[in-house]
Design a protein around this nucleic acid. Structure first.
Lengths: 155, 155
DNA sequence: TATTGTTATACTCTATAACTATA
DNA sequence: TATAGTTATAGAGTATAACAATA
């Protein structure tokens, strides 16, 4: 962000024209806001959105290999290596030998990773709730449902 | 994206846990989808989301200076230089001397920029409509309204 | 002194491609 | 031959900081 100033969605006196009518532009602005607040909420742990996703997925699907994690997250294998390296350095994830394949690793959270994930998840949920608090319950549910409908649609 | 494969929101057999309950995660996935289709739709013109925003804003607010554009778009001044450089190289934007300030430039679209922006805008609107087509009219309006409410809220 | 545009530099994220060790 | 993980490398995108010209 420029000069440490926060992003202003609409600068007074400026015409935004067609941008204001695009769902895609609104999605992008919402994403910027969500990302900013996520990073602030995760500051104590050094967790980014992809790191959080990786921790949750490995936690619930123990024994995943790096290639599987990459496919699930939609990133390149080399990206998964860097992601796991970072989580290993934070003491949250470990590469265990895969019993049936000496080329591969079984990914798992460390005990510290499991313990901190509980607190991290609570903080993420609180942040998600805080950002959406200006919507009433029905609006929150509608927004969530419509976003899922948008991105889960067949391509 | 990994190995030229498209992002799959839910890989069969994988547990996503709390991720599926977060509005922020849904926003991110919707944004990935919107971005992918935007880039595909803009392939004939080499236009990215920030380039499109810059063209629209300069088109509707002619005479803007680089520093103003940077502030409006929420990027650093150095980023605006690179953005304008790219649009100038595409033949879409020009730096005109600012009449009242010899340090600054007045940004404006070229004739080619104005002409192509009409077609580009039509393609962007078609893409936005295509991605949201699985929502009915009311759902589209609701989604747009709720996204704006989310990102326009006071921080 | 402050501001405008620019440049130099660096950091993050992510991709492709080549490599090694296994399968 | 194909696959798992790794490494090297490169390309966006964006940031900070310093600079010359001008205000």
């Amino acid at each position: 962000m420029s000069d440490s100033e926060l992003f202003v969605a609409h600068v007074p006196g400026i015409q935004y024209g067609v941008l204001d009518s695009l769902v895609g532009y609104a999605v992008r602005r919402a994403q910027i806001r969500m990302y900013e607040t996520f990073i602030m909420a995760m500051e104590p742990w050094g967790i980014t959105p992809p790191r959080f996703s990786a921790m949750v997925i490995v936690s619930l699907n123990p024994g995943l290999k790096l290639t599987q994690l990459a496919k699930i997250m939609g990133i390149a294998r080399s990206g998964a290596v860097i992601l796991v390296d970072a989580l290993e350095e934070l003491g949250y994830m470990q590469r265990l030998p895969a019993p049936e394949d000496r080329r591969a690793f079984s990914l798992a959270l460390t005990e510290k990773g499991k313990a901190d994930l509980v607190k991290i998840t609570a903080a993420v949920q609180a942040q998600d709730k805080a950002v959406t608090q200006m919507l009433d319950s029905k609006e929150q549910a509608d927004l969530h449902r419509l976003l899922l409908k948008l991105s889960d649609a067949a391509i």
